[in-house]
Simulated assay, not measured.
Amino acid sequence: MPEHLHEYLVEITTDVPPDVPAEEVDRRRAAEAVRAHELAATGRLARLWRPLGEPRSIGIWRAANEADLRTAVLGTLPMWPWMTATVTPLEPHPNDPGADT
């Protein structure tokens, strides 16, 4: 992980307005995939899951602070204007079995 980045559990729900043309949604979804790969390559996106059949994602994201997370990371996602996010700051747990790996 890049230095001085904190981890956040982020739950994102996407709600595309009904008047947005399908072509625009498709364009943004394709750009979203590219941006997610870029953020993963820089260590900003660590893990990402989608609950079955739901228009939301749950992920582990990294940023200097929550403002950085919302502006420089999540705010760069092409679908961000249609997203709402619940952000939970995380800290290491002393009993984390993955801490030794």
Rank of each mutant, 00 (worst) to 15 (best):
D19K: 12
T14D: 08
I12Y: 12
P2N: 05
G98N: 09
A31R: 10
H93P: 00
P18I: 12
R35T: 04
N65T: 02
M1K: 15
I58L: 09
R28H: 11
T14L: 13
A63R: 01
W49R: 01
P89A: 09
R27A: 09
V73K: 06
A31K: 04
R56S: 11
E3D: 15
V25G: 01
T13P: 11
A85T: 03
P78W: 00
L90H: 08
P78C: 04
T84I: 05
P92Q: 15
L48Q: 05
T42L: 13
T101V: 11
G53Y: 13
P55S: 02
A72E: 04
G43W: 03
D100L: 12
A72F: 01
R44Q: 01
A36S: 10
G43F: 00
V73Q: 09
E38Y: 08
L45T: 07
D15A: 14
P18C: 05
P55A: 06
P78G: 02
H37F: 05
M1I: 12
T84Y: 12
D96E: 04
P81T: 03
V16M: 01
A40F: 11
R70Y: 03
T84V: 12
A63N: 10
A99Y: 08
D19L: 11
T86K: 12
R44C: 08
Y8F: 15
A63I: 04
T101I: 11
M79Q: 01
L74G: 04
V25Y: 06
L77T: 00
R29H: 03
I58F: 07
E32T: 04
L5W: 15
V73P: 02
T101G: 02
V10P: 07
G98H: 14
L9N: 11
W80C: 01
P55M: 03
T13C: 11
R29Q: 01
E24F: 02
I58T: 13
L90Q: 10
A67M: 06
V25T: 11
A33N: 10
W82H: 07
R62P: 04
E38P: 07
A46D: 10
N95A: 11
P94Y: 12
E3L: 15
H93N: 13
S57D: 04
H93V: 08
R29V: 01
Y8V: 09
T71H: 14
L45C: 03
T84F: 09
E91L: 06
P51L: 03
M1G: 11
R50E: 12
G59S: 08
D100N: 07
A22C: 12
T88C: 15
T14H: 14
A41L: 02
R44D: 00
G75E: 00
R62L: 03
T84S: 15
E54Q: 07
P92C: 05
R29M: 08
M79T: 06
E38V: 06
P89R: 09
W80E: 08
E38K: 13
R47Y: 15
G59I: 00
P21K: 06
A64W: 07
